[in-house]
Design a protein around this nucleic acid. Structure first.
Lengths: 222, 222
DNA sequence: GTCGACATTATTGTCTACAATATCGTCTGT
DNA sequence: ACAGACGATATTGTAGACAATAATGTCGAC
């Protein structure tokens, strides 16, 4: 019997948010979560602080945690920064990229394709983010990897909040195209493909119509 | 009698690191810190997780926390990303920047100048970072502000680790020049000044000589 | 009948004690 | 004398109990 870890709980909540089972604004009561996962509140508190760091929940003093409600502007900022970070990741990666790593990456994309074929949404979400994190990890740049973790989870939240259809965000085709350029050692083309890919994802969201959830009741009703 | 808060403790530790009173690699034992600040270990734990989020300390499971030991490559990544983030901050800021905010900014620079004149190192450190955070806060972009907090603290660590002289990093003159461009509503020049400023700071560090602290003993001795 | 103060309840924040784990010293067998 | 394992100690991880705080419902006064 292995007690569930903090990371596992955090992942579960992350997935629930990405799947839109937990909607922005929903309260996450500590005692409730502790009950659900069969752990103490102390552990849940760690989970919540981790989730807050990744921008998935927002906590207010003495008022608890709620699922974060990103604004359209925030979403644009996140995509903007993410484009820069991902390009940097590729630049750092391409210098020490060997055949084995490339194989792992192609294998990963194959898994994505399988999940897509099976319409296994949870797996799709995990793998899509995982691909980008894998690139960062292989780049061997801890700081960039940490940033990417943050950005990926925030992107999940944004996608959940702003996509209209049930279309999936990260298609395997674009990932594979990117890998081809990496395989050829062409950094510029790889970066271009990455930017294109991210813009594609961003453009599928409804950021234009700023039907922003109002920050306060006052704003919402007056 | 007000008990010291988590943020205050974190700031104290941050300053000690920035002042090089705490050196990279030093252990931060929980009980010891709890004793020093007169609080319980639970509180210290919160402090340490916060510091880890900001990249100032590194914790390993069941082994405790040590002051982080950034590599030169990591430092370069951080500066690279920081340039992009700061430019984005300026872009977001310039649209809704009024006379009052500008006044506050100029006032802040005046304080920096005073601290410099008095050679109050602790105050210099606080104010230098504070200036950049102030810009982010005024931009009204929470995500960017959070990123900047992270980047500023990481920059403090890098500066502490890699500067050779006791030269101070952020000079008030460059900050003021930036403000002039903002006052004139010239985004491009402001961004250019910012990039120049950050490159200036980066170039004063000894990142070239990669006398990287080896990650492991094996690497260090063999 | 409505406004304001007060009590109740639910929820988070904090502390203290206990359990798990790693590290380091020591001992024994060869 | 040295290698390996075992045990002691120090340190972190976890849980549960208690205190503080904020939201809400109720009562009383005007």
């Amino acid at each position: 019997m292995a007690p569930i870890t903090v990371d596992e709980i955090a992942e579960r909540i992350w997935l629930s948010i990405a799947e839109r089972r937990l909607r922005p604004g929903m309260r996450l009561k500590e005692a409730e979560l502790a009950e659900i996962f069969g752990v103490s509140r102390a552990r849940i508190r760690q989970v919540l602080t981790a989730l807050e760091r990744d921008g998935l929940v927002k906590t207010e003093a003495n008022k608890g945690a709620i699922v974060a409600e990103p604004s359209a502007d925030e979403a644009r900022d996140i995509f903007h920064i993410r484009r820069e970070v991902e390009q940097r990741v590729l630049a750092r990666l391409i210098s020490h990229l060997d055949a084995e790593k490339l194989l792992d990456l192609f294998e990963h994309v194959a898994k994505e394709r399988a999940a897509n074929a099976a319409s296994d949404q949870r797996e799709i979400i995990k793998l899509s983010g995982g691909f980008h994190l894998m690139l960062a990890e292989m780049a061997g740049a801890d700081f960039l990897w940490g940033l990417m973790r943050d950005l990926v989870s925030r992107t999940s939240l944004i996608t959940a909040a702003f996509r209209d259809s049930d279309k999936y965000n990260c298609g395997p085709d674009e990932h594979e195209e990117l890998l081809m350029h990496l395989k050829n050692g062409d950094l510029q083309k790889a970066q271009h493909a990455m930017v294109h890919h991210l813009e594609h994802v961003e453009n599928e969201l409804k950021l234009a119509g700023n039907l922003d959830h109002a920050r306060s009741l006052k704003d919402a009703l007056l």
